[in-house]
């Protein structure tokens, strides 16, 4: 209560000064007083009360009854604003609590879904995944085997936020539990489809692309469950080709067979995998064209793969005013020899 007394003293001084001088300085100080009051949770009705008290002290016995009553009326009319202020402050505290909980969850997700970018002879790997918000609905994963094959998974939950992120953790643990000898892309998708169909809400779908690189045969086998098509870069001809693969998104039907294709990879060729956060990057109201995406990728493709994905990301981040609308994941595999 003492601070209010102190404030009353200050308020009376300011008011007196203003009534005497009609000066902008006093008004500026009133603004400061107002800010300070908000900071100290002082509600509008208390300020009006302070005003009434200050007037009484400045003009003892001289305030007409109507003026005094009207100020009391004003005080009454301000009560709900005071309550709204308190509620707002309470909600703001709760929001920051929630935010810190979410950031803990996001960190946990990062740990859960972390994947090590393997070192595979003859393949330069670059990967980046940035969530639009705290938690990501995108996911990528590398599986390196003793025989130097490289498995790569990229997935996107249709839907965003925490539910999407939770589903992704499930995908990761399902993949980890599959037997070692089962690394064929079509088989992996078929198994995951069953897991997703059984465990995920019918309204939630997951798209996924799975590829397996075999250095002995220099081939890339792949299958897709409705995932955003990636690109194959033919270095010799300096052209991109869409990686064609069709398959139903995960979780729609109980039994789905996924078609598996194989491509031969030449030296300097690249495989580019991405999520729709890359291709559906928005500039203002307009979605970017796939050709524009390829142009940007091509511009950086001469760089080491990790640098290339980071530059591409930074390019699109800037293009969207540093505010991603969707999770962004891009993987580049470059065949070196």
């Amino acid at each position: 209560m003492e601070s209010v007394e102190l404030d009353l003293e200050n308020y009376r001084k300011l008011l007196k000064e203003y009534l005497l001088t009609n000066d902008e300085t006093a008004l500026y100080q009133a603004e400061q007083f107002s800010k300070l009051s908000v900071q100290h949770n002082i509600s509008p009705e208390e300020i009006i009360h302070v005003h009434i008290e200050a007037l009484k002290e400045l003009y003892p016995g001289m305030i007409p009854r109507e003026i005094n009553d009207s100020l009391n009326f004003l005080l009454e009319a301000m009560i709900s604003y005071g309550l709204a202020l308190q509620e707002y402050q309470h909600l703001r505290e709760r929001q920051s609590e929630l935010e810190s909980e979410i950031s803990i969850a996001a960190n946990m997700q990062k740990t859960l879904l972390s994947t090590v970018k393997p070192t595979i002879k003859g393949i330069d790997i670059g990967a980046i995944s940035v969530p639009a918000s705290h938690m990501s609905g995108d996911y990528y994963h590398f599986v390196a085997d003793t025989d130097d094959t490289l498995g790569v998974a990229i997935a996107d939950v249709i839907g965003k936020g925490i539910p999407a992120a939770l589903s992704m953790s499930m995908i990761k643990y399902s993949m980890d539990s599959f037997p070692e000898n089962q690394r064929q892309p079509s088989a992996i998708l078929e198994n995951l489809n069953r897991v997703v169909e059984r465990n995920v809400d019918p309204g939630m779908f997951i798209t996924m692309f799975y590829g397996l690189y075999d250095p002995k045969s220099e081939t890339f086998s792949y299958a897709s469950a409705g995932h955003e098509p990636g690109f194959y870069y033919h270095a010799k001809e300096d052209r991109f080709e869409e990686i064609e693969a069709s398959g139903l998104v995960l979780g729609v039907q109980e039994h789905v067979n996924y078609e598996q294709s194989v491509s031969k990879i030449e030296k300097d060729d690249c495989i580019i995998l991405l999520t729709d956060g890359v291709t559906e990057c928005r500039i203002g109201d307009r979605f970017i064209e796939r050709d524009e995406v390829l142009e940007v990728i091509k511009h950086y493709l001469h760089l080491p793969a990790q640098e290339a994905v980071e530059y591409v990301y930074r390019y699109f981040e800037r293009l969207q005013d540093f505010h991603l609308k969707d999770d962004f994941t891009l993987i580049i595999l470059k065949k070196e020899v």
């Binding site: 009705e45 208390e46 009360h49 009434i52 009391n72 005080l75 009454e76 009560i79 709900s80």
Partner: peptide
Amino acid sequence: FGTVDQARIAT
């Protein structure tokens, strides 16, 4: 009760 508290009680 003061005027502010009176108003709060009434509300």
